[in-house]
Design a protein around this nucleic acid. Structure first.
Length: 439
RNA sequence: GGGGGCGUGGUGUAGUGGUUUAACAUGCGGCCCUGUCAAGGCCGAGAUCGCGGGUUCGAAUCCCGUCGCUCCCGCCA
């Protein structure tokens, strides 16, 4: 007998069917037993009259909550049943895997344990439909990203995560034993994306892990995260990258809304808003003025930069003034940008770069890259980098490399913003932080 | 790395110097009732109040240290 999804049972009234799922609740009475069974499409009540088969009744009584079961039975219409007005009259029960009692974490308790405890028992935590909805939405979002890229001539790449030397910053990389020497985990596919530009790929994207050895204890940082990266050639400025990103994100939001509108409303309690293009753009210098005018004093050490509180305020300002959740902060000072960001020809102190702030949270950094070898070398030296260690990278620009730019986006941060989650640890399948390496 | 907050049965909380043999909810076990449906009722097991030291006649409660968690800053996606 073919398995029928619980959500489709209405179409099988009067038929004998097989369902597979988890025993969410067992109401074990004197004469009757009611099993509430869940699969990823919904819940159904299974009824069993104990006197018809006392051995079966005992078997049912022994089931722990959240046991994995396969049940066959007759689907009957029954308006008295509050759960969908139908039920399954049990014929056979196969216990695929009994669940020990008590559960360390009850996914369906009215109060949720602390996040840290939930992460200890993540596989049980993830049985909550709301948690699963996050990853259904993410699947659609990633699919939409790929669709849009493919429609626009992008090539997918997979760059190595083991590197022979720490890339530009050095301080925040993980070192791992690599036979007789050290290797380093990539904090970004940045250099390899640019290599693809030098290789003539013109447009590339990569969705892959990135590693940061910063001991960051915040609701938005992870030591390992999924980075969404893209790079495109023959651009005129960072404006081309922003123009691409906003349409790309609009497409992603539209696809998610088309597919998950009801689900998001049910589990997260709001209507997903597809952002209008163009997104507002505010140069950093202007953003600082706006925030100061709002009465916030940016810490003095933040020259040419803005702090997270400032970003939240800018997010608020843009929401009020333009009714928009997204804002590009552009033209950052060279002091706070890496050497490979291209500088404005008319003002050499600012870069052709941007961050995308979504609901006050930084989710993207992007820029036009410097592709002129001599300028790049000069900028690297200015930042005090040893040319030897990046020579392989510098070589990309010696034999014909087009102008290019791109961006990196934190996938879980996007999910956080899209679904209004307060902590990345909710938005990622398994969290990795300075003190968490399990499960 | 710096700062704030928290740490009480499995889980979530109350109690913030003495009437606490540490309470409540939920979960777990048992019994009763019932075509149940956020089920209901009764009984029971389960916490030396993170750990160590100190103050005090007396500490879950105050102090110090330590560990863990958490949030913010730094760093960033």
């Amino acid at each position: 007998m073919e398995r029928v999804f619980i959500g489709d049972l209405r179409q099988h009234i009067g038929a004998k069917v097989k369902i597979k799922g988890w025993l969410q609740t067992l109401r074990d009475q004197k004469k009757m037993q009611f099993l509430i069974v869940r699969d990823h499409t919904g819940l159904v009540q299974v009824a069993f009259e104990k006197q018809t088969d006392t051995a079966m009744a005992e078997k049912i009584s022994g089931l722990g909550a959240e046991s994995a079961v396969v049940i066959t039975g007759l689907v009957v219409d029954n308006p008295i049943v509050k759960l969908g007005g139908l039920e399954l009259q049990l014929h056979t029960l196969e216990v695929e895997s009994n669940a020990a009692a008590p559960l360390p974490l009850d996914p369906f308790a009215e109060t949720l344990p602390s996040l840290d405890y939930r992460l200890d028992w993540r596989f049980l935590d993830l049985r909550r439909p709301q948690a699963q909805a996050i990853f259904r939405v993410q699947t659609t979002a990633v699919m939409a990203m790929r669709e849009y890229w493919l429609q626009n001539g992008f090539i997918e790449m997979h760059s190595p995560k083991l590197m022979g030397s720490a890339s530009e910053s050095g301080a925040e990389v993980f070192a791992v034993d690599y036979f007789e020497r050290k290797a380093y985990l990539a904090q970004s596919p940045q250099f390899y994306k640019q290599m693809a530009m030098a290789a003539g790929f013109e447009r590339v994207f990569e969705i892959g892990p990135a590693f940061r050895a910063d001991p960051s204890f915040t609701s938005r940082h992870m030591t390992e995260f999924t980075s969404v990266d893209m790079e495109m050639s023959w651009i005129d400025s960072h404006e081309d990258v922003m123009a691409f990103q906003e349409r790309w994100l609009q497409y992603v939001y539209q696809r998610v809304k088309d597919k998950h509108d009801a689900e998001i409303r049910e589990h997260f309690g709001f209507d997903l808003l597809v952002p209008a293009v163009p997104f507002p753009r505010i140069p950093m210098a202007e953003a600082r003025e706006i925030v100061e005018k709002m009465g916030y004093r940016i810490p003095p050490e933040k020259k040419g930069d803005i702090d997270p509180e400032g970003e939240r305020l800018i997010g608020k300002y843009v929401k009020e003034k333009y009714g928009h959740d997204f804002v590009f902060l552009t033209d950052w000072s060279i002091n706070v940008r890496p050497f490979y960001h291209m500088r404005h020809p008319e003002n050499n102190n600012i870069t052709r770069s941007f961050d995308l702030i979504a609901s006050g949270l930084e989710i993207t950094t992007g820029a036009q890259r410097e592709h002129r070898y001599d300028v790049l070398v000069k900028q690297a030296q200015e930042k005090g980098l040893s040319l030897d260690s990046i020579q392989f990278y510098l070589d990309f620009f010696r034999y014909g490399c087009p102008s290019h730019g791109g961006l990196g986006l934190g996938l879980s941060r996007l999910m956080m913003v899209m679904l209004n989650l307060s902590n990345v640890r909710e938005a990622v399948y398994l969290f990795r932080g300075p003190t968490r390496l399990t499960p």
